[in-house]
């Protein structure tokens, strides 16, 4: 219940935060929403010597469209996403995702940056971001800034491409094309649980045919899993029920679940298949202007 001792730092600017990280080295952790880190610290599964709190850096809390991208500041909270009209209207997959994360109280503080930077394959945004082909913007010492393709960001359980002295500052998502839709469907044992499995799907259509697609899966592998074959099989088709069935099977094959208290490997693959099928259908309906 009670974390070990640490020093708390509350930098006023992003640069100050990065400098702190740089100076303090591996003993320091970023405190964003705190809803992944503090529970681990209360169980003493994590005992960082320093916490660098970026939750009060209000310049990291924004949702805006710019230069062909939806740009989300790292400190946008899940409830911020849930309640954004722009998100509800143009990026329903993000609303789908944020509203199934943990519970409403957690979502009031938990940040999208933290959800991604934590590198937990059980978190929900990572798969969604894969399906959306997002770009992770990362700032480091001396004003350095780099953009990481989401496919290169997740390296293993709780392990990302983020350097020790870097801070994830923004997520960039390509703005949707003319006819596109996305959807995230999660199966959880109860509210507040991680996914047994979840499936994120995005589809773009041109002239009635699927021109591009993104399919990614939550909590069925050491990292979020992109189901590439499943994506490919949709391309060029009208995404008929038959094709959806094929893609769902391919997604199940692409998943790498391990059996645990949430279910056996076999069951989780079955769930991936079911959810992916449903998510493709819903994404298609949304692309066609439905809900």
């Amino acid at each position: 219940m009670i974390p070990g001792a640490f020093d708390y730092h509350s930098p006023k600017t992003l640069d100050e935060a990065i400098n702190l990280l740089n100076d303090l080295g591996e003993d320091a952790k970023i405190l964003a929403g705190g809803h992944s880190l503090l529970p681990m610290m209360k169980w003493r599964l994590a005992e960082p010597a320093h916490l660098v709190d970026i939750s009060r850096l209000s310049d990291l809390d924004y949702i805006k469209e710019e230069n062909g991208f939806l740009c989300l500041g790292a400190m946008v909270t899940e409830s911020g996403l849930e309640n954004s009209e722009l998100i509800a209207e143009k990026y329903p997959i993000l609303k789908d995702t944020s509203e199934v994360i943990a519970d409403p109280l957690v979502r009031n503080l938990a940040s999208i940056g933290g959800n991604i930077a934590h590198g937990d394959p059980a978190n929900d945004h990572p798969a969604t971001m894969l399906a959306l082909n997002a770009i992770v913007v990362v700032c480091g010492p001396n004003g350095s800034k780099r953009e990481i393709n989401i496919d290169e960001f997740f390296l293993g359980p709780l392990w990302t491409a983020l350097g020790e002295n870097e801070i994830l500052t923004e997520i960039k998502i390509p703005m949707p094309k003319q006819q596109s839709g996305g959807c995230y469907i999660k199966l959880e044992r109860k509210v507040g649980d991680y996914a047994i499995a979840a499936s994120a799907v995005t589809l773009d259509f041109e002239n009635g045919k699927c021109s591009s697609s993104g399919i990614a899966l939550t909590n069925v592998g050491p990292t979020p899993v992109r189901a590439k074959d499943a994506q490919d099989v949709l391309i060029g088709t009208d995404v008929s029920n038959e094709v959806i069935e094929q893609a769902s099977n391919l997604a199940a094959e692409a998943s790498q679940p391990v059996g645990d208290h949430r279910g056996s490997e076999e069951y989780k693959r079955g769930v991936v298949k079911t959810l992916t099928g449903r998510a493709i259908l819903k994404a298609k309906n949304r692309a066609m202007g439905g809900n």
């Binding site: 219940m1 708390y8 509350s10 705190g34 503090l38 709190d53 109280l105 009031n108 503080l109």
Partner: peptide, 18 residues
Amino acid sequence: TVLLDGTAVKSCTVLAVQ
């Protein structure tokens, strides 16, 4: 649960210094 600047949060997962 308490309200922090008007938002409901779980006060066991917020530091007093925050």
